[in-house]
């Protein structure tokens, strides 16, 4: 029995297919989930994918955070279900209150699309257990509103408790405070990051296979449990 990883499709999601493909490549059973359903179909983990849910109207992730499926995701995440938010999914996690802070327009105003080096800062999460602490990975980053911000007290709390999960190395693409690319919740089951590990699971189609580690990590944790 392998684990079942659900991927939510919102209207305007773009990277749900790649997230499903990454789950399959890691050895999990990929399960498509629908934004309008109050149903997680019994999955063992959930990925909120990248894209422009609801056209990013109002604020990126704002309307998606109130989608019917998100009521289920929030409740399940609070009960310990592993949840990964990538790019727009990270924005949704912040808007829904599962992660602190917010993602705002890039400091340089440009939409940035490039291969990005990241340092894995926290291996104590459901999604990063297979990485070595301090490991550097290269995955694509592509966003116009990826600048992570939070008040100083929140940033200090994230740093003090090892809750910065990923940090930009070799150049900050969007002006994110303290070079933060991704964070985790206190329990470590919820992780959000702006760059795209699901696009880097095969050197044939991505800059590396470094991103597969997130999906392998959650699978190992689920099947060991």
């Amino acid at each position: 029995m392998t684990a079942r990883i659900g991927v939510v499709t919102f209207p305007g999601s773009l990277d749900d297919r790649d997230a499903l493909r990454a789950a399959r490549a890691a050895g999990a059973e990929p399960v498509p989930l629908w934004h309008g359903d109050h149903d997680l179909r019994g999955v063992d983990a959930v990925v909120l994918p990248g894209g422009f849910s609801y056209g990013d109207y109002l604020r990126a992730g704002a309307i998606a955070s109130f989608a019917p499926v998100m009521a289920e995701v929030v409740a399940a995440a609070r009960a310990g279900l592993p949840v990964l938010g990538i790019c727009n999914g990270f924005q949704v996690l912040c808007e829904s209150g599962l992660l602190p802070g917010a993602l705002i327009r890039n400091a340089g105003l440009h939409f940035v699309c490039r291969d990005q080096r990241l340092r894995v800062e926290s291996t104590d999460t459901a999604w990063t257990g297979e990485y070595a602490a301090g490991a550097e990975i290269v995955v694509p980053v592509k966003n116009g509103e990826g600048r992570y911000v939070a008040d100083e007290a929140t940033l200090d709390e994230l740093e003090a408790n090892g809750r910065v999960a990923f940090r930009y190395v070799g150049g900050n693409p969007n002006g994110a405070l303290r070079d933060i690319a991704g964070i985790r919740n206190e329990a470590g089951n919820v992780v959000g990051l702006m760059p795209h590990p699901e696009h880097a699971i095969d050197p044939l189609t991505g800059p590396s296979a470094d991103g597969l580690g997130l999906f392998v990590s959650v699978l190992k944790q689920l099947t060991a449990a």
Partner: peptide, 8 residues
């Protein structure tokens, strides 16, 4: 609830 994000 919706129009503003009190974080920012």
């Amino acid at each position: 609830t919706l129009l503003a994000n009190p974080v920012i």
